[in-house]
């Protein structure tokens, strides 16, 4: 309870700083007050188009996230087992981690319609995160536990969940905590460049074109809230899986 009060106090402090800064600047085009941004958000909420935009972006970004998660995790398995595969994938993963989102996006616009751009960009951002984390988890698997499982003759399914998954899930959780937020950031950034109709990115772009700073802040708040909710929900699901495996 005390911790929550302190967090709320900190948030309030920065809202007051924002309010005072905006009041001192007195130019809504440059910086709106938090009150004006909140008002605009309240105006947007009843609009069906608002929810359609969130749905449009969420479906694509989460599809990219899920496929990146799956692909990164699956590629880490042979890479952890065969050094050649790890060496082969190393330049690709290093490149994916270093290339800016803007470069991906512009290149992808040549191949894809802007509508599905965020799927590819979120995929390319998530995949190396899961790959690296799961690979370090696989490399850290304790061979003595495998030997123990052999001695006791633990059956394959139990061995997979109890011996291997129980060691890998903390790595999966760490990757997820990083990847969910990043895929939203990169997915929306891609949409701002590609401007697909009916996306959150398009709304941000329009806010910039028409200098509607209140809209820009309102949509930014929406992105933060949706990204936060996705992260919490996904981590809660992973946490449940961890608990289930812990108790087997």
């Amino acid at each position: 309870m005390k911790k929550r009060l302190i967090t709320a106090g900190c948030v309030l402090f920065w809202l007051v700083v924002w309010q005072l800064g905006a009041a001192a600047l007195d130019r809504e085009i440059f910086l709106v007050t938090p009150v004006a941004a909140a008002k605009r958000l309240i105006e947007l909420v009843p609009d069906a188009d608002f929810w359609k935009s969130i749905g449009f972006s969420a479906v694509r970004i989460l599809l990219g996230f899920a496929s990146g998660m799956l692909c990164g995790t699956l590629l880490a398995v042979p890479a952890g087992k065969f050094p050649f595969v790890k060496r082969l994938l190393s330049p690709l993963m290093t490149a994916l981690k270093s290339i800016p989102v803007a470069s991906f996006t512009i290149l992808a616009l040549i191949w894809l319609s802007s509508k599905n751009l965020s799927v590819l960009v979120s995929f390319l951002i998530c995949m190396p995160i899961y790959y690296s984390n799961m690979l370090s988890g696989i490399e850290a698997l304790d061979p003595k536990l495998t030997e123990m499982a052999n001695v006791f003759g633990i059956p394959a399914t139990k061995r997979f969940a109890g011996v291997y998954l129980s060691q890998l899930l903390p790595h999966f959780r760490a990757a997820s905590a990083l990847a969910v937020g990043l895929c939203w950031k990169s997915g929306v950034a891609a949409e701002v460049i590609g401007i697909p109709d009916g996306s959150i990115g398009e709304k941000l772009y329009m806010a910039k074109v028409y200098l509607e700073t209140a809209d820009l802040f309102a949509w930014t708040f929406v992105i933060i809230a949706v990204s936060w909710a996705c992260e919490k929900l996904f981590l809660a699901a992973v946490g449940l899986a961890v608990k289930r495996i812990e108790r087997m």
Partner: peptide, 13 residues
């Protein structure tokens, strides 16, 4: 298995 409970470790075998 450090991440499993005491009973889960025993139930593995």
């Amino acid at each position: 298995c450090e991440n499993l409970t005491v009973s889960a470790n025993i139930r593995l075998v």
